[in-house]
Amino acid sequence: MDIFSADINCCTEEMLQIASKELYKKGYVKESFIKSVIDRERTNPTGLQVEDLINVAIPHTDIEHVIHPTIVIVKKNDQSFFTFHRLDEPDKVILVSVVFLLVVKEPSGYVDFLADLTGLFQESEFINLLLINPANLIGAKLVEKLSKYELTYKGDLINEKP
């Protein structure tokens, strides 16, 4: 499975739009994925507060919009955060450091991956890695940490720098 990183200094919905449009251009998702993932985040938000250690988000949508599974690690590179609504209390918002955009084709594979990814949150070293490092280093590290998924780090999702 391919894994990308991206630095996108935009608000949440614009970030999701930019990332998923790029995934569509590269042939990983159908065009319908773009609207679907944004709508899904509105109705079933995915902001996840991991104790008081870090806030992440795991946007995703139905498998019917997916062609090839992939993951995109998104961060802002200006030290600011994305605003997400909370998965457990959708009325509340949190400031998110790292976004894992999950593009998954098999529902069971999704659960496996999510279990292993959130399992890594138990390691304080991994939390620090997420907080301190840019998206590309996190992408490279995940390849090593989640080796059973045979991830291939494909670099920056958005080649053209703004």
Partner: peptide, 26 residues
């Protein structure tokens, strides 16, 4: 409730648990 708003209408004799620990692992 693993994710989403807890519905108000659950009868009192049923225990309602916020499932976020099962999501984060903590």
């Amino acid at each position: 409730i693993a994710a989403g708003q807890t519905p108000a209408s659950i009868p009192e004799n049923i225990l309602v648990v916020k499932g976020i620990p099962l999501m984060t692992g903590f």
